[in-house]
């Protein structure tokens, strides 16, 4: 592999690169959360984003998912410059985000959550009704494709385990034909077994050709799952490494600044 830092500067020509964010800046009042950070995401890979609290990871993700439009810098998706004002616009371009709180309604069934806000209906005008059969079948199929321990789609989310909820949220994001699925700490609240199942779900997603951007504090997980790692420090992407060519020690050194990239 070639030096990944030079790749991020000029990536628009590389056909392997699905998304590249270049020189992204974002300030909140006097706080400069991002000071010109750049990163790239390759097709069908799991890209990890690591760094200390306040390094700018979450802000970067929010810029990519349309929650906070960046102050300056360019985002290129599939070779075209894009800008997202709202999460809806990002979704239309194929960028789905699994929120840290998962955005599930506990009182509703799995299939209802799966389709919430994008329900399938039949009929027309004021006589439009929910196409429950099709929604249940589709949700069941898409969740089964992805997750290991599939809950029945008619059960309420309240009855699901943390891992099943995570799997549902991931399947929902992937189910909308997203090219990129962004996940913020997907296993932070899970036990060992459930973490393994969710990681399997993320791998299945990658194998289906979806690019995954993963924020994680867990170095073992990053080493296990990701193909590429970006290290954030003080509002900048200070280093990019192929996971196969780095080690946990090197990543820690890069995060703390003990080692310059």
């Amino acid at each position: 592999m070639t030096d990944t830092m030079t790749q991020s500067v000029d990536s628009s020509t590389d056909p392997d690169v699905l998304l590249s964010a270049t020189n992204i800046k974002k300030s909140f009042g006097g706080v400069h959360a991002l000071k010109g950070a750049s990163l790239t995401l390759r097709r069908g890979e799991i890209t990890a984003l690591i760094g200390d609290n306040g390094a700018g990871k979450s802000t970067m993700v929010r810029c990519l998912s349309g929650i906070h439009p960046p102050d300056s810098g360019t985002i290129t998706l599939d070779g075209e410059v894009v800008s997202f004002g709202t999460p809806k616009e990002a979704q239309k371009s194929g960028i789905e985000t699994v929120q840290q709180n998962l955005a599930l309604v506990e009182e509703l069934a799995v299939w209802q959550n799966f389709f919430l806000g994008r329900e399938l209906t039949q009929g027309f005008g004021p006589f439009r009704t929910l196409n429950r059969k099709l929604m249940k079948a589709t949700a069941q199929e898409l969740i089964t494709d992805l997750a290991v321990n599939v809950p029945p789609v008619t059960s309420k989310v309240r009855r699901l385990s943390g891992g099943q909820r995570q799997a549902l949220a991931i399947a929902r994001a992937a189910g909308w034909g997203g090219k990129i699925v962004i996940m913020d700490e997907p296993t932070a609240a899970l036990g060992v077994q459930e973490t393994a199942k969710v990681e399997q779900t993320i791998r299945t997603l990658r194998d289906a050709g979806v690019s995954v951007l993963l924020i994680s504090h867990n170095f073992d997980q990053v080493m296990r799952l990701s193909d590429h790692v970006w290290v954030f420090r003080a509002g900048l992407a200070v280093a990019g490494r192929r996971t196969a060519e780095t080690s946990g020690e090197e990543l820690v050194a890069l995060i703390t600044g003990a080692k310059e990239a």
Partner: peptide
């Protein structure tokens, strides 16, 4: 049986999640 009804339940269940969707 309608989208509106589902949204009524969703907003009551968790307004934050409903809005996020």
């Amino acid at each position: 049986r309608t989208r509106f009804g589902l949204h009524v339940q969703a907003v009551g269940g968790s307004e934050e999640s409903a809005v996020a969707n």
